[in-house]
Amino acid sequence: MSDRQRHQAILRILEEKPFASVHDLTAAVGVSAATVRRDIEKLDGAGLAQKVHGGIAALEGAARRPVALPFIVNRDIAVEAKRAIARTAGRIVRDGSLIIIHAGSTCFHFGAHIANRNLRVFTNSMPLAAYLSEHGTCQLTVGGGDLHREPGVLYDPQRAPDSFYGSQFFVGALGVSSRGLLESHPLLVRFINDMVGLANEVVVLVDSRKFAERPPTVALPLGRVSRLITDDGLTDTDARMLEDQGVDYIIADRAEAAA
């Protein structure tokens, strides 16, 4: 199989699913892992797909109904935007407060950013809890329940909501539209609704790509959002939508976070 044929085969695979690992591709195209990694580099360099940790991801597109990528993959996509959002979100957190941080990659970057602040953090996110336990100095409380490896949360829908109360609930989403925050995983929809009732303020952390995504389920109407933080890739159309819905939003500067 020629280089061109392999590249076409890889792109066809990405039409069917948003992510393919190096192992998946070696089995599919019948070449070594080293050859697959070179193919990934070339496709990424040509702007036809995106190199991510452990494999390759399809480019984001408005017409595609998104499927949630594995956390370890999604964590390394749009990192500059997510770090900019994390940095901006950190400015609205008061020292000494209790905050709730949802699962997901943007919330993970935010949690890592405030890891050494004088805060009490409550989270059901296993990746974030593991990071904070090793690298953070903030007080940490981890929610209980069964471990759901994807999306990486500890949660038991049969349990009553926890008996704590936070000043802010930081939450991400797979998509955002005038309907609200959009998700594809029913467990996350239930979890978000449980957590909303335990905080004074709901702060949404989403990079600007999420405004083009259309998952099937509304997890939270925009009317229940106190504030939304996104990056400077937000389009004028999406900004007007937020304004029409009465959402207070903040734009994070990616260049500032990269400096």
Rank of each mutant, 00 (worst) to 15 (best):
S2I: 09
E134H: 09
S167I: 12
T230N: 08
I192M: 10
I101K: 02
A258W: 08
D76Y: 08
A257G: 10
Q8S: 10
L222I: 01
T235V: 09
P221T: 15
E201W: 00
L174V: 13
G172K: 00
M126V: 15
I100N: 14
F71K: 02
A78D: 15
E134N: 07
G246D: 04
Y155A: 03
K82F: 00
V202S: 11
Q168A: 15
R214Y: 10
V218W: 02
G96R: 06
G143P: 08
L154M: 11
T106H: 00
L174I: 07
P127Q: 02
A34L: 11
A49N: 03
E80A: 13
G96I: 10
F164M: 12
R87Q: 15
I101M: 02
C138W: 00
M195D: 03
G172W: 09
P221S: 06
D162N: 11
R83H: 05
I13G: 00
H185D: 12
K51H: 14
D231K: 06
L59P: 04
L181F: 08
R117G: 14
L147I: 14
F71D: 04
R149T: 13
P157Q: 12
T230D: 06
E256L: 06
R4N: 15
R120A: 12
R159H: 04
V36R: 09
A129F: 02
E150C: 05
M1C: 10
A239S: 13
M241E: 05
V73L: 06
A103K: 04
V189R: 05
V31E: 06
L220T: 05
V153G: 07
S167W: 13
F169W: 08
L119W: 04
D24T: 01
H185V: 14
A130P: 03
V202A: 03
V22I: 13
D24W: 06
